[in-house]
Each structure stands twice: as structure tokens, then as C-alpha cells.
Lab assay of single mutants.
Amino acid sequence: TYYTVKSGDTLNKIAAQYGVSVANLRSWNGISGDLIFVGQKLIVKKG
């Protein structure tokens, strides 16, 4: 599943929405910090 980042989104918010961990979101998307951008597509695997 792909999720497109919207204004106001955070990794924590997206992780909670999908029932996954922030660590997994980072791993699946090659993100090291907490910086995400509006319009960015993130890979999300269902929890």
C-alpha cells in the first residue's frame, strides 16, 4: 500500500493510522529521521 503524505502528517500519525511502528515505516521507506514531505509517497505494509 502507498500513502501520500498530506500537510500536517507525521510519521507517528501515519504509523498509528495503519497500526504499524514508526521504525517499520522508516525501514520500508529508507528514512533515517522524522523528515517527510507533502506529496511524498510512503510504502505502508498493513500491521
Rank of each mutant, 00 (worst) to 15 (best):
V20H: 03
R26G: 04
L35Q: 13
F37S: 10
Q40T: 06
R26T: 08
N24R: 09
A15E: 02
Q17T: 13
T1M: 15
I14A: 01
W28E: 03
T1Y: 14
N12P: 13
K41P: 06
W28P: 01
V44H: 02
T10G: 03
G30Y: 10
W28S: 03
K6D: 05
S27M: 15
G33Y: 07
A15Y: 01
S7K: 12
G19N: 14
D9E: 04
S27R: 11
K13R: 10
N24E: 15
D34Q: 08
S27N: 11
G39H: 05
V22W: 03
Y2A: 06
L11I: 10
F37C: 08
K41N: 10
N12I: 13
A16I: 12
V22Q: 06
L25D: 00
G33N: 10
F37M: 10
K45V: 12
A15H: 02
L42W: 01
L11A: 02
W28D: 04
G8W: 05
D34E: 11
K41V: 15
K46S: 15
G19I: 05
S7P: 13
I36M: 06
R26A: 08
R26N: 05
D9Q: 02
S7T: 12
K41E: 11
G8I: 03
Y18G: 03
G30I: 08
N24P: 02
G8H: 07
G8E: 07
V20K: 03
I14N: 00
I14K: 00
K13T: 14
D9Y: 01
R26Q: 11
G39E: 04
V44C: 05
V22A: 10
K41A: 09
G30M: 11
A23V: 10
N29Q: 01
G47A: 13
N12F: 14
T10P: 01
T1W: 13
V38K: 07
G19S: 10
G30F: 12
V38R: 06
Y18P: 00
G47K: 12
L42G: 00
I43V: 10
G47I: 15
G19R: 10
V5Q: 00
G33V: 07
K41Y: 09
I43W: 12
G8K: 06
G8A: 06
V38D: 07
L25G: 00
I43S: 05
S7I: 13
Y3K: 02
I43Y: 09
Y3E: 02
I31N: 03
T10K: 05
S21Y: 04
A23N: 11
L11G: 00
L35K: 12
D34C: 09
G39L: 03
Y3A: 04
Q40L: 08
V44Y: 04
S7M: 13
T10E: 05
G19E: 10
K13S: 15
I43F: 11
I14E: 00
K45R: 12
L42S: 00
Y2P: 05
D34F: 09
Q40K: 05
S7H: 14
A16C: 07
A15T: 02
V22M: 09
K6R: 10
D34W: 09
I31G: 03
I36T: 04
G8Y: 06
Q40C: 05
G33P: 03
G8R: 05
D34I: 06
L42R: 00
G39K: 04
Q17L: 15
A23M: 09
K45E: 12
K6S: 12
